[in-house]
């Protein structure tokens, strides 16, 4: 009985296993293969070591800096919002959650293009400012514009896991803390926040990684003036046709992704162990 059940459930997973093999595992193997060989197919570490090239390391540091700042801003916006959402009665919070999710149904590129026309010199904000007699602001094609684009596009990925974590916290735990004399601040610091940490970490991962690797946001809102590591890799493939170097630099990024995934896996395990 249990054997047939296991067999049939393996059967259910089959379509996805094929999917994952064809579109995730094989491409990843190809990236590793290209990244560790030169154009003649001989093994080399040069494509990965090329991250030390000033142009590349600068682009990587820039990407780390901007995606770090975007993640911090996302967290600062998302956490209070989630606490607010959890406090609300059921019913009205689903409306707010909808407001957060609906923009995600629109195409990512279109949303980013829309920011162009908001931030431009002749854009909505500056037209309004000038009409009111203020000096126009220089917003588009700056680091700030890129961070804004990252925050806007990736904020829902921070909100949803934090919201889930906060919602799962047993109200009795909070009441118990209060009964035992903890004030609001202590309850938050010692009870609520630690319990929501897995959500925070998965939110941070889900914002930081796409922000770190983006090339669309930086090229649309940065005017091509700010080179992130994602742009370098994209251009190695699309402009220079250097798949080896492009893959090698991707492997460097992969290291950051793995570090992130390991951190969130470890914390989750820790939480489970505690529970």
């Amino acid at each position: 009985m249990s054997k047939t059940r296991r067999l049939s459930s393996a059967f259910l997973g089959l379509p996805y296993i094929f999917w994952a093999a064809a579109f995730i595992v094989i491409p990843l193997i190809m990236v590793v293969w290209y990244g560790l060989t030169d154009e003649n197919g001989a093994f080399t570490f040069a494509n990965v070591a090329a991250i030390a090239d000033p142009a590349h390391s600068k682009a990587l540091l820039m990407a780390l800096l901007l995606s770090f700042l975007a993640t911090v801003v996302c967290f600062l916006l998302a956490y209070p919002l989630c606490m607010f959402l959890v406090e609300l009665q059921k019913g009205s919070d689903s409306f707010l959650t909808m407001l957060l999710i609906v923009p995600m149904w629109m195409n990512f590129l279109l949303r980013t293009y829309a920011w162009q026309s908001i931030l431009e010199k002749t854009g909505i904000i500056n037209t309004a400012l000038t009409a009111l007699g203020f000096a126009p602001l220089r917003m588009i094609n700056t680091n700030g514009a890129i961070i804004l684009g990252m925050v806007y596009n990736f904020l829902p990925f921070m909100v949803l896991p934090i919201y889930n974590a906060l919602e799962k916290i047993d109200k009795n735990v909070i009441n118990a803390a209060r009964d035992l004399g903890a004030d609001g601040r202590i309850t938050f610091l010692r009870v609520i926040f630690p319990l929501s940490l897995p959500g925070v970490i998965s939110g941070v991962t889900m914002v930081f990684i796409p922000a770190l690797t983006t090339f669309v946001v930086s090229s649309l809102l940065g005017g091509g003036k700010i080179l992130l590591i994602g742009n370098v890799i994209e251009q190695e493939f699309m402009v220079a046709y250097d798949w080896n170097l492009g893959s090698g630099l991707s492997l460097v990024l992969l290291i950051f992704i793995i570090i992130n995934v390991v951190i969130s896996a470890v914390t989750e395990k820790g939480e489970e162990a505690k529970a």
């Binding site: 000033p54 142009a55 590349h56 600068k58 080179l227 370098v232 220079a240 250097d242």
Partner: peptide, 14 residues
Amino acid sequence: AERLYYNLWKEIKS
């Protein structure tokens, strides 16, 4: 030469 142009271009862009 293509590679040279491209590398110099990267220096400008970064």
